[in-house]
Design a binder for these strands. Structure first.
Lengths: 252, 252
DNA sequence: TGTTTCCCTTGATTAAAATCAACACTATTG
DNA sequence: CAATAGTGTTGATTTTAATCAAGGGAAACA
C-alpha cells in the first residue's frame, strides 16, 4: 500500500504509509531497534521470509488473549499495544506497553499458551514472527539466538524494574518513572523526548503502576503546578527533565 | 564426596551428601525438575560436560553481585538463594528466592552484566552453567534451546505474577501467596507441602513482597490466630490449606 | 449534530500499611 | 558464659493512597 500525497510545495510525492504492511525488514525504518538489529545482509532476508504482516489492528482490537494457544511473538511496527492480565476478581493488571520496534508475546513460550492478553491502544500494525520458525532460524544463526535470549532477558530486567517501582516507590515516583521511560523510548526512535502524546488512558496508567485513576490524575496536577510537566489531556510536555528525574527518584 | 552414615537400624549405609559436588546430571535427584528435564541419554552427558560444580557457598556468601560481568547462569543444587537489587537510595528489593532445581542469573544475559546480586540464605551448592557453552549446545540441541526459552519465559510470567501481587493485593494476600508458592515448590521436590522451614528472614519476605517487617509479622500473627498457619519462628505449618488459598485470594 | 458514554479532575473521608517506639527472644562471638 | 548484635513481635500514631462522591469535558456514534 502506498498513498499519494501532495507536498507542502504542491509537488506530488510518494510516501509509505506508517501502517504499510508491504514493507520488509531490510527497508523498515525500525530495523536498527527491532529484531534484525543483530543481523546483516542475507540473514535479514531469511528472517524477513518467516515474518508475516497482516492488516493493521483497530483501536481496542485484540492481538491475542490470555489462554490462547501460543504460536508467535510479535513486533510492533506502528501504534501502541498494551499487555494485560485479568485477576481472579476481575480487575485488570497492565503488564506492559509496547511501542514500535518492541517485541511482545514472549510470556507465552513457557506454557505454549499466552499468559496475558494484548490489545491495540490505537490503530497499530504488527509483524508476526512464528515461534517455531524463529527457533529453527535461531539454531542456524547464532547472532539471532543470542539476540533473542537478550530480548527475553531484557524483558526480565524490565519486569524487575517495575517490581521495584511498585514495591518501593510513591505515586509521584511511579508516574515520573513512566514518563521518563516513554520519553527515552521515543528518543530511541528519533522522536521528541520532551513532547509526546500518551497513547494510553489514565486508567491504563493506574493499572500499570498499581494506582487508582484519581491518584494518577492528582500526580499530573501536582507536576503541572510544580512546572515539571505541562499536561493537556494526553499531550505531555516535559518542562523540567532534571526535576522529573529527581521526582522519579532516579539519579540525575 | 560421600559420607558414611549409620541407618536407624544400625546398619552402615552410603548416602551422597546434599551439598556433594561430585554428582552429575544423570544421577542428580533433581534432574526431573532442572535443566536436564528436556533431555535424555547422551544429550544429558553433553550438558553435564559443560557444567561446573564448585564447593558450597556459606550462608550470606555472594554468588555474584549486581554489575558483575555476566558469564554463567546457575542451577541451585541444595540450599536456597535470594536475588536482590539495591535501589538508588540504598534499600533492598528482593527479586526472587531460588530453591533446588531452579535457575538464576538469566537477568544478566541482556547486558552481559548481572542486573541483580545473588546470595546464599543458608549453606547452598550451585551448578554453574557457562552461558557461551550453553548457547553452543542450544544451537545443536533443539530440545535444550526450547527448554531454555521456556525457562526464561517462565521467569517472565512469574515476575508478572509478582507485579500483579504487588499492584493489586493486600498484605495478607501477598504473604499468603508466598506461603503457597513455597509450599508448591516443596511439593515439586517431593517435600512436604504443609510443613517447612522458611530459609529467609521476615525482612527478606518484606523486601520481596513490598511490605515492612512489622506488617509481615502482624500478618503471621493474624494467620496464626485464625488457625490457618502455625508459625514458630521460621517453622511453618499450613493448618488450613483451603483457608490459606482463600486468604491469598486464589481460586480454591 | 445531538446525545450518550467514557474519561478526567477535584474534594472529602476512610482504610491500610508505614513509621516510630519499646521490648523479648535468638544466635553469634569474644 | 556473658555481652551484643541481630531478629521478631506488638502497640500507638501518622501518612499515603484508596474510596466515595460529584461534576465537567472529550469523543464516539446514531
Amino acid at each position: 500500500m502506498t498513498i499519494h500525497l501532495t507536498d507542502a510545495d504542491g509537488s506530488a510525492v510518494l510516501k509509505p504509509c506508517v501502517h504499510d504492511y508491504q514493507v520488509n525488514c531490510s527497508n523498515c525504518r525500525l530495523n536498527s531497534v527491532c529484531l534484525p538489529l543483530a543481523l546483516e545482509g542475507d540473514d535479514i532476508q531469511q528472517l524477513d521470509d518467516i515474518i508475516q504482516r497482516s492488516k493493521p489492528l483497530q483501536k481496542s482490537q485484540h492481538l491475542y488473549r490470555e489462554g490462547d494457544h501460543f504460536q508467535s511473538v510479535y513486533a510492533v511496527r506502528s501504534g501502541t499495544m498494551k499487555a494485560y492480565k485479568t485477576t481472579d476478581d476481575g480487575r485488570e493488571q497492565v503488564t506492559g506497553f509496547f511501542f514500535p520496534g518492541e517485541i511482545l508475546g514472549m510470556d507465552g513460550i513457557s506454557n505454549n499458551s499466552h499468559a496475558s492478553s494484548a490489545k491495540a491502544l490505537e490503530t497499530a500494525a504488527v509483524c508476526e514472527i512464528p515461534f517455531s520458525s524463529l527457533e529453527k532460524l535461531s539454531s542456524m544463526m547464532p547472532n539471532l539466538q543470542r539476540h533473542f535470549f537478550q530480548l527475553m532477558s531484557r524483558e526480565i530486567t524490565e519486569d524487575q524494574q517495575l517490581i521495584t517501582l511498585l514495591s518501593k516507590n510513591s505515586a509521584d515516583e511511579r508516574v515520573g518513572a513512566l514518563m521518563l521511560s516513554i520519553s527515552s523510548r521515543n528518543a530511541r526512535r528519533q522522536l521528541s523526548a520532551t513532547q509526546f502524546r500518551l497513547p494510553m488512558s489514565r486508567v491504563d496508567i493506574g493499572n500499570y503502576l498499581g494506582l487508582t485513576v484519581e491518584t494518577v490524575s492528582r500526580v499530573f496536577s501536582r507536576m503541572q503546578k510544580m512546572e515539571i510537566l505541562r499536561v493537556e489531556n494526553k499531550e505531555i510536555e516535559i518542562l523540567d527533565p532534571s526535576g522529573l528525574k529527581n521526582m522519579a527518584n532516579l539519579r540525575n
